[in-house]
Amino acid sequence: MIPDNFEYHKPNSITGAISLLSEWGDDARVIAGGHSLIPVMKQRLTDISHLIDLKDIEELKGISISNGIVKIGAMTTQHELIQSEELAKTVPLIREASLQIADPQVRYLGTLGGNVANGDPANDMPGLMQTLNASYELKGPDGTRNVDAREFYEAAYFTAREDEEILSSISFAVPNGGYAYEKQKRKIGDYATAAAGVLIEVENNICKTASIALTNLSDTPVFCQNAVKILIGNKLDEPTIQEAVTACVDASEPVADVRGPVEFKKYVAGIIVRKAITNALARA
C-alpha cells in the first residue's frame, strides 16, 4: 500500500499543466483531490512517474451562474458544490446528488473535475452531468474543445479526453421543472448499488422535457434515451411511468459484484428509477 516513486509538480496555470503533460506523456497524470487516484497508486496498479497537482491553478476553480448557464471549474470540490447557496437555489439537484457521495472527508477533497474525468462508472457525477446534459471543456496543446457528457464516456476508465488534455470546466443550462437524484448504497462512503438522476418538466399535465441517467449500472453512465422518449409529450400516468422505468432497466447492463447479482441490480435499478421519477414529478 505504498506508491512507487514519482516526481511531484505543482504548476499554477493551465498552460503550465498542459506543457508538463505534453512533456511527460503517458508517464504523467494530473491529480485533483486524489481520492480516486491515490488508492490506485498505493496499490501500484498504475505506473505514474510524474504527478501534476492542479491545486494551485486558480483558473480551474469557482462556480458562476449567469444567463441561465452554470459553469463550474474542474477543481471545485464536492464540498464546495454543497456549500454554494446560489447553486442550491438554481440547481438543487447538484446538492441532492453531492450529499449522497462518499462522506464529508472525501467530499472536502474530491473534485467535480476529478469525479467526471476519472471515467469510473461507479462515480455519481458523470450520470448527474448526463442528466443535466452538461458539456465538458477540455484544454490541450491544440487548444480548447467541448465534449458533451453524454458523449464523453467510452468504457470504464476510457473517455474522450486525450492524455495531454485537462478537463477545465463543466457547463450546463439551468434546468426547469422537477429533479431528483436517488441512490441505493450499502452504507455511508459507498458507491451506488444503483443510482438515477431525473429531470422532468411538465406543462398542462404533459411532460415537456425529461432526462434520466443511471450510475453504476453499466461500464459507463447510462443516458436513458428510450425512457426519455416515452415520457416526453405524454401524460405521466402510471402505465407511462412503468414503461419508462422498464426502458431504463433495459438500458442498464450491470455486472455482478459484492453488491449483488445482476438480477438484483436490475430490479433495484427499476425501484430507484421509479423513486427518482416520482420525486421529480412531485417537484415539477
Binding site: 441505493q184 450499502r186 453488491r259 449483488g260 447479482p261 438480477e263 438484483f264 430490479y267 433495484v268
Partner: peptide, 11 residues
C-alpha cells in the same frame, strides 16, 4: 443479511 441477500429471500 445485506441488501441483495434480503432481496433474494423476498424473491
Amino acid at each position: 443479511h445485506d441488501h441483495w441477500r434480503v432481496w433474494k429471500i423476498a424473491d
